[in-house]
Design a protein around this nucleic acid. Structure first.
Lengths: 191, 191
DNA sequence: ACCTGAACACCGTTCAAGT
DNA sequence: ACCTGAACACCGTTCAAGT
């Protein structure tokens, strides 16, 4: 499909040279269409990059939802570990693409993208946490927000530091430990 | 000074309209110089934005170093709280500038900037943690990396979600709690 | 109906001319 | 010595002409 060719060309150019190498002419050329055709699919260059990021976040949200669904009723420690694992793996498996997208989306007005993604993830992780076999929370929303923000923020931060993989692995374990000790420190809701 | 005028103009334009409104012509005009003069200070537009971010990180690093120095020998819980507080405040006090810089730096090759900042902060927080009156760590480097990555990543992540300030305040408390329970969960180094 | 690519406005950067 | 800003190459976007 033409659209796929355009997206693929965009990713390649973004990975290779970042936003300032991404040229409408080059995208069109690599995708095998004319500039004019590209403008039938996207009203401007920003819209193209925006759509690419929307696509990526859609995939990421689906993977997180799948992880959460599969741990319904599990112990809380397992949930945290699975969540960290899924997010970490999703960001790391194609690190160059992740990095390119982080950079490309920054100069867009991406608040709608972030909001929609956050809502989906909050819903998925919130439902998972509520079903935990060994804990129940007085302030589920607050705990959920804290966990999600800490996990996602830490993974990004770790990613940007470009750590050697042994240090990264260790950091991942510390992150899981941190979430678990936090959860243990919170008082349970009495039945 | 001319340089200050250029930086000031750059910040204003960046806050007002992001990277794609930032034009060498507009910066020069607003700073009261010609484009040619601007190019005597910076070899290209990227260098201007890079220098602006370097300046910001220099200030931030100094503030963190000051915080760390002032808590030498304090209890570990107080250290964590002070660190979260300093970083959180620095990012929040002029949220529009923070946001504009986050966005502007993304499309640069900013790894040297991040690395240098990370080294300074790691040194400052590492020295602080080592002096804690009520704890000592088997793996100080690992604990230090974990704390710094979690705190900085979480603050950024929280920042990007644009939370209402009550939720943000609560999140900040949860973050401190999380760091503290983590530290309590780690076995002390025997003397 | 749909695609093409020359043409236009604007941007980053340079450098001959001015002081 | 230092500054200026017209000029150049290139980019995003459009739209008359082609199929």
């Amino acid at each position: 499909m033409t659209l796929d060719a355009i997206f693929e060309a965009t990713i390649q150019l973004l990975v290779a040279g970042g936003m300032h190498r991404l040229t409408t002419t080059r995208v069109a050329e690599r995708a095998g269409v004319s500039v004019g055709t590209m403008y039938q699919y996207f009203p401007h260059k920003e819209a193209l990059v925006y759509a690419l990021n929307a696509r990526y976040l859609e995939d990421l949200a689906m993977r997180i939802e799948a992880t959460c669904a599969s741990r319904q009723g599990a112990p809380i420690g397992e949930m945290v570990e699975a969540l960290v694992d899924t997010y970490w793996r999703a960001k790391t498996e194609r690190a160059d693409v992740t990095r390119a997208l982080y950079r490309s989306v920054a100069e867009l007005d991406n608040q709608p993208l972030i909001d929609a993604f956050a809502r989906r993830v909050d819903a998925a992780t919130g439902a998972m946490l509520a079903s935990a076999s060994d804990a129940s929370f007085h302030d589920l929303k607050g705990v959920n927000l804290a966990l999600v923000t800490v996990i996602f923020g830490t993974v990004r931060s770790a990613f940007e530091r470009n750590l050697p993989s042994s240090a990264a692995q260790d950091l991942k374990r510390q992150l899981v430990l941190m979430c678990r000790s936090y959860l243990a420190a919170i008082p349970d809701k009495p039945r």
